[in-house]
Design a protein around this nucleic acid. Structure first.
Lengths: 222, 222
DNA sequence: TCAAATATAGGACTCTGGTCCTATTTTGTT
DNA sequence: AACAAAATAGGACCAGAGTCCTATATTTGA
């Protein structure tokens, strides 16, 4: 299974030894966050998981907030990097590309790391400004490709409407996480739900117009 | 603004004094959960917020886990009670009822309590069996009314497909929380997003069929 | 090879938080 | 009024966690 690849941000550790350490630390922190939530993330456990002492951990991160921020930055950067690759191996037609992305995202939220990490991020973002800011950056990036495809599939849509549609589609998929995610009650229905999502979103993008969005006029059944 | 009404479950406190206390305790716990997350919920703060001593709090809840569970039970019970009222003041036609419920839920997730409480619940459910179980009960209940309406609007759908469609719709709306919720980046676009959701879900329910869901055949554009 | 920078362990220190105990007051019942 | 049950405060206890300090070891570049 594909796994998020963390990368040390430049300037943290000088020697290669230090680089490895930081990576180990972040990996350990991520593991703890995924397995037990932020609640379970203590500096002693992080150090232990990284195979170093608390004192040494303190050398790299002088306080817990710094570590948390670097963890969020790093994990989110890894997800952003993934999005850059999605579009390449999509299909030829716009519809195919669109559907491929939807399927990719919904498949991804079936992994343990995504299923467990993101709810923590959403909860953190409610009380931590930095988390909120990073989260916004992540989803802004995630919507970029959706935005382009919506624009191509429905050129008449205003920029505002288009961005709202992209937001709806993105948020809608995220919402599936606690339901069809790793070991969640509907995990076995993930593929069917993915079909529903692809179908529904494609229909939406094809048929929506500014009027319906901005003033709420529902098109009557023919 | 409407606010979730907590109710003491029977058998907790004997005298009326005790009943009031439990209510104050739960309210204090909920306030802390909403303002600072589970991370910020300490027994001392709960006691202080309820205007009692830690010793006294310990008399009502002998450990933190008991308090957390009762809090989840109580808050979730309050949300479930709300769902029972939704359907009454909906419109006449099935479409109207359906759209009314979608709008109600999306409006509700604009409140501070819903915006902040639910991500905590989703995160807790990843690591607490009881939280997961209560969460499941809540959403099962929330889907009941959606299920009925989907069945009426699209009678040809199999039970399996119908439940998957209801799940998709419900989860999709929940996913909007971290984006259009209270003081979130897209809070001002909540109404437009609500329009998109209503439109999109109605289209989905009207046009979907078993074949498309179970085998992923997308209906080509005419 | 040697010095400076870097990395590391171990422990101490303090604060917080969950839990528990006991003595006292309040409440409801007979 | 008297008694038992319920409610309450205060404090003690202990484990855990974040932070900090210092002495040593290791690595790198000159």
């Amino acid at each position: 299974m594909r796994s998020i690849q963390l990368q040390v941000r430049p300037g943290t550790a000088a020697f290669s030894k230090g680089q490895e350490r930081v990576l180990k630390i972040l990996q350990s922190a991520q593991d703890l966050m995924i397995s037990g939530g932020y609640h379970n993330l203590t500096l002693r456990k992080v150090a232990s998981g990284a195979g170093i002492s608390v004192g040494n951990l303190n050398y790299y991160y002088s306080n817990k907030q710094d570590l948390l921020r670097d963890l969020l930055d790093t994990v989110i950067a890894a997800y952003i990097a993934e999005f850059d690759n999605v579009r390449q191996d999509a299909g030829v037609s716009l519809e195919d590309q669109f559907v491929a992305i939807v399927r990719f995202i919904i498949e991804d939220l079936g992994t343990q790391e995504t299923t467990n990490f993101f709810p923590e991020l959403w909860a953190l973002a409610n009380h931590d400004e930095h988390a909120a800011e990073r989260m916004d950056a992540l989803y802004t990036k995630a919507r970029l490709v959706l935005n382009e495809l919506v624009a191509s599939l429905n050129p008449d849509l205003s920029e505002q409407s288009r961005e709202q549609v992209a937001l709806f589609i993105s948020a809608s998929m995220e919402g599936l996480t606690p339901f069809v995610g790793y070991q969640k009650p509907w995990a076995n229905d993930r593929d069917a739900i993915s079909n529903i999502a692809a179908l529904s979103f494609l229909n939406l993008v094809r048929s929506v117009n500014d009027e319906a969005i901005q003033s709420g006029t529902l098109t009557p059944q023919p």
